[in-house]
């Protein structure tokens, strides 16, 4: 092969762009690290410190934390997540009907959507910080924080599933002279209920993690156990609490995911797996292509 044809030159700019991006990342790293009070010996010492603690964590002191009632605390986290989810579900459901563009007039749906957005913007922990002075320390503060925060996401998801329904039955009920409430109950509700209840379960999975964290600032549940063991540098106990928590979280995830699959497939007769994937993409804010 002889190079008689003119070969195109590699396009300029691609290389430069790559280097610019690399430079930006390096500058961002340097700037970030400069603010973290990192000294060389801290940096070099960190893996060693972490390793030392990790070694003390094995074996976990299950018997000791069991005596202190850690198992009860883990369950308390589950109760908090459950009741928080129930509160969020019950309050968000009627609101979602008022927020969906295909069934609600604009003057009510815009403010309710904004309410959902505002609630979603406030993390549970911040809500708990505000609530604790009012309710006092304890699980009820955490439950309320989770319940309120759940209204935001559950409301948004429920609204979206209402907006995606078949509008035929709505027209049918309208044509019989039914009221708005009857229309929601008989034309919309049966269409969305299985999807929405699977969202509730999905939110419950998330809330179990959230309620574990809430305990760290005194809003009930297993978080307080972990904090107190770590403060006293009782690492075997801390790791036992950690293992218990992770075990419960993973168990609940597994059961709940199985139930959700059943709700979605069982109710339509055919598989509709996209819904739970959608729920995840709702949660993450990233639309799958």
């Amino acid at each position: 092969m002889t190079a008689t044809t003119r070969r195109p030159a590699a396009p300029r700019g691609a290389r430069e762009r790559r280097w610019t991006v690399a430079l930006v990342i390096v500058v961002a790293m340097v700037w970030s690290v400069s603010g973290l009070n990192v000294t060389l010996d801290r940096l070099l010492g960190a893996p060693g410190d972490a390793w030392a603690i990790l070694r003390q964590m094995v074996p976990p002191a299950f018997a000791r934390v069991h005596e202190r009632g850690a198992v009860g605390k883990v369950f308390e986290s589950v109760y908090i997540a459950w009741i928080g989810t129930v509160i969020g579900a019950l309050l968000s459901l009627p609101l979602a009907f008022l927020a969906a563009h295909n069934v609600a007039p604009v003057w009510i749906r815009v403010p309710i959507r904004q309410l959902f957005n505002a609630i979603r913007a406030v993390p549970e922990l911040i809500l708990a910080v505000i609530l604790i002075p009012i309710t006092g320390l304890g699980p009820w503060a955490g439950t309320l924080a989770i319940g309120i925060h759940s209204i935001g996401t559950l409301g948004k998801w429920a609204t979206e599933s209402i907006e995606s329904i078949d509008s035929g039955p709505i027209e049918a009920v309208e044509s019989t002279g039914g009221r708005w409430v009857s229309n929601m109950r008989w034309a919309v509700f049966p269409q969305v209920m299985s999807t929405i209840s699977s969202y509730w379960l999905f939110r419950f999975e998330i809330n179990v993690r959230a309620s574990a964290v809430l305990g760290m600032i005194g809003a009930g549940g297993v978080g307080s156990e972990l904090v107190s063991h770590l403060v006293f540098r009782d690492f075997p106990a801390a790791s036992a609490v950690l293992v218990l928590t992770v075990g419960v979280v993973l168990t609940i995830d597994t059961i709940s995911a199985a139930v959700r699959r059943r709700i979605i497939t069982g109710s339509v007769g055919k598989s509709e797996p996209s819904r739970s994937a959608e729920a995840l993409s709702d949660l993450t804010g990233i639309k799958q292509r």
């Binding site: 993690r209 964290v213 760290m216 972990l226 904090v227 993973l250 995830d253």
Partner: peptide, 25 residues
């Protein structure tokens, strides 16, 4: 990774604070 994700984010923070000291590091 499943186990790592099952540990809530603030649990990691508390563990790290205990291991390498209070602060942004």
């Amino acid at each position: 990774m499943n186990v790592v994700r099952a540990v809530p984010d603030l649990f990691w923070a508390k563990l790290m604070v205990t291991a390498i000291g209070i602060g942004a590091f």
